[in-house]
Simulated assay, not measured.
Amino acid sequence: MRFGATPTGETVDRHVLTNGRMRVGILTLGAIVQSVELPDGTDVVLGLPTVADYLQRSRYFGALVGRYGNRIAGGCFTLDGVSRQLPCNDNGNSLHGGKAGFDKRIWRAEADGERAVRLTYVSADGEEGYPGTLTTSVTYTLTERDELRIDYHATTDAATVLNLTNHSYFNLAGSGDVRDHVVTIEADHYLRVDAGKIPLPGAPTPVAGTPYDFTRPTAVGARLDGCYDHCYVLRPGGVMRVEEPVSGRTMEVTTTEPGVQFYTGHMLDGIATPYGRQAGLCLETQHFPDSPNRPDFPSTVLRPGQEHVSTTTYRFAG
Score class of each variant (00 low, 15 high):
Leu86Phe: 03
Glu244Leu: 12
Thr139Tyr: 02
Pro217Asn: 08
Gly101Glu: 07
Leu134Gln: 12
Asp53Trp: 00
Gly98Arg: 11
Asp180Ala: 12
Gly280His: 01
Thr141Tyr: 01
Phe3Leu: 07
Gly92Trp: 15
Pro211Trp: 07
Leu234Thr: 03
Leu224Gln: 05
Asp103Pro: 06
Gly69Lys: 05
Ser83Met: 07
Tyr140Phe: 15
Leu148Thr: 07
Arg23Ser: 03
Trp107Asn: 02
Ala222Asp: 15
Gly305Arg: 15
Gly41Phe: 01
Gly9Leu: 05
Pro49Gln: 00
Pro7Ile: 10
Cys231Thr: 11
Asn91Pro: 01
Gly132Pro: 08
Ser35Leu: 04
Phe102Gly: 03
Gly129Asp: 05
Val301Tyr: 02
Asp290Ile: 02
Arg105Asp: 04
Ser35Lys: 00
Thr256Lys: 02
Lys197Cys: 14
Gly92Val: 06
Leu191Met: 07
Cys227Ile: 00
Thr139Phe: 04
Thr255Ile: 05
Gln286Trp: 04
Gln278Pro: 05
Gly270Tyr: 03
Val36Pro: 04
Thr120Ile: 12
Thr218Glu: 13
Arg59Tyr: 10
Pro199Lys: 14
Val45Leu: 12
Val260Ser: 00
Val301Met: 08
Asn91Trp: 05
Thr205Lys: 12
Leu302Ala: 07
Asp290Tyr: 02
Asp43Ser: 09
Pro39Trp: 12
Tyr140Ala: 04
Asp40Ser: 07
Arg71Ile: 03
Tyr60Leu: 14
Thr156His: 04
Gly202Trp: 06
Thr264Met: 10
Tyr190Thr: 09
Leu17Met: 11
Glu244His: 14
Val246Gly: 13
Thr8Glu: 15
Leu191Ala: 08
Thr143Ile: 10
Gln278Arg: 10
Leu162Gly: 14
Ala154Ile: 14
Glu147Ala: 10
Leu234Phe: 01
Thr133His: 03
Arg294Phe: 06
Thr78Gly: 00
Asn70Gly: 00
Gln306Arg: 12
Ser291Val: 03
Thr42Trp: 00
Leu27Arg: 11
Val301Asn: 00
Thr6Lys: 08
Arg71Asn: 09
Tyr314Val: 06
Arg84Lys: 09
Glu114Val: 01
Arg235His: 12
Val12Asn: 02
Tyr263Phe: 14
Pro298Phe: 14
Gly221Asp: 10
Ala63Phe: 07
Leu119Thr: 08
Met267Arg: 11
Asp53Ala: 14
Ile106Asp: 09
Ala279His: 08
Val12Met: 08
Leu27Thr: 11
Asp112Phe: 06
Gln286Asn: 10
Pro298Val: 15
Ser299Gly: 12
Val301Trp: 03
Pro217Leu: 07
Arg71Tyr: 04
Ala219Gly: 09
Glu147Met: 02
Leu79Thr: 00
Ala116Asp: 07
Thr120Lys: 09
Asp225Glu: 14
